[in-house]
Design a protein around this nucleic acid. Sequence first.
DNA 1: ATGTTCTATGAAAACTTGTTCACTGTCAAG
DNA 2: CTTGACAGTGAACAAGTTTTCATAGAACAT
Lengths: 219, 219
Amino acid sequence: MEELTKKQRAILDYMKAHVAEHTYWPSIRDIQAKFRFASTNAVFGHLQALERKGVLQRIPGAARAYKIVPEVVADLSDNVIRYEGPGDDAIELNGIPLVGHIAAGFPDYTESSGVLNTMQAPISEGSRRRAPQAFALRVRGDSMIDADIHDGDTVIIEPGQAKHGDIVAALIDGETTLKRLIKQGNKTYLQAANQNYPDLTPVQSLVIQGIAKSVVKSI
Amino acid sequence: MEELTKKQRAILDYMKAHVAEHTYWPSIRDIQAKFRFASTNAVFGHLQALERKGVLQRIPGAARAYKIVPEVVADLSDNVIRYEGPGDDAIELNGIPLVGHIAAGFPDYTESSGVLNTMQAPISEGSRRRAPQAFALRVRGDSMIDADIHDGDTVIIEPGQAKHGDIVAALIDGETTLKRLIKQGNKTYLQAANQNYPDLTPVQSLVIQGIAKSVVKSI
DNA sequence: ATGTTCTATGAAAACTTGTTCACTGTCAAG
DNA sequence: CTTGACAGTGAACAAGTTTTCATAGAACAT
């Protein structure tokens, strides 16, 4: 997976935000104006790059017509999220859209063969609501059973400052788990909300990816 | 609220479906081809009508650029859904999108002052997944407390054939309630899943609006 | 009958938008 | 130093797309 340059990232984000705010894609000249390019060709080149790098799909000749490709695939099995690159198997854009106060936009969730693919949700700068970058993850495993989060449920993760007691998706030593955040003094632990699990895992390098704000359960 | 003609409805639905499937709006010529009009002006007239009737907003001059306006507002307070017409107060398109297997599209949910506005979700004809016309409702009241559906939760309603035991949104004598469907022989009852509520309400005229498939709970 | 509205045709105009071409400068690798 | 990739300017072209204009039949109320 080729990395995006700073400007390519900015343009892609702007396009997503534009869709989120207006419900239709920006034209090349819209992007040109936003970034104060003197030529449309500057935008054109970046769009080509974005397509070449596989994160954007253009519809040739059609105006304001694009598709986005999920950039991150997360598989939460046994309470562990593994990140995979995109582009391997066919990804449909039909899926589970975001739950929460996310502005109008395209759902960035795809479910295929038991894997819930997620992507950073587009943020609407014009949106007055919060919950930027929220995403959903399907839970596999029972480590949070005491918090009424069961296997098969889908949790909604939102970035933010995690407090003591929050259920967080945390990246621990390269793997992401869903656990409860415990702060004791200046020490931080992660606790599985399952009486059968060992308690209070001490954490070396802790990266909180987000806080579980809500859970979607099948009836 | 002016009523839409059959063709206007069909065109609006097609446009929504197109967005749901492709993530961008159809051009006038796309619509023309779909409905086999001989002139683009036929489509143009219908789009004007749709805008005049307030269900569609066009962006003048811009290609493939539209916004949709929620058509139905539902307020589920005290376990009762009241339908209101649109156009009264300002409606934002930012809101709670659909939960479930809905194709990529615009979230049709708006929350304003404790009212969860819903709209028929766009259906993607190209989508291989089911769950057409699903919508979300916020629950007020405790009549389903025994089914673990509490005040403040959001339930996802999907149309379909309701079976015995399903939790349904049913239109009873002009009002919609959320209850469990009980079939005994050829008789149909609705049962509140709360031990404090009277049991087995017999139903005169029963219109099942949909089946509660999942529930969104705050953590 | 008569006017009005709705729906549609057919063609063209006007504008929007994607795309191409020629050229320039920067920056790092070979 | 040279090469190539990257980013950008400026202009123009070609296609896509909306919009307008002129016209007409059907349905319907007055």
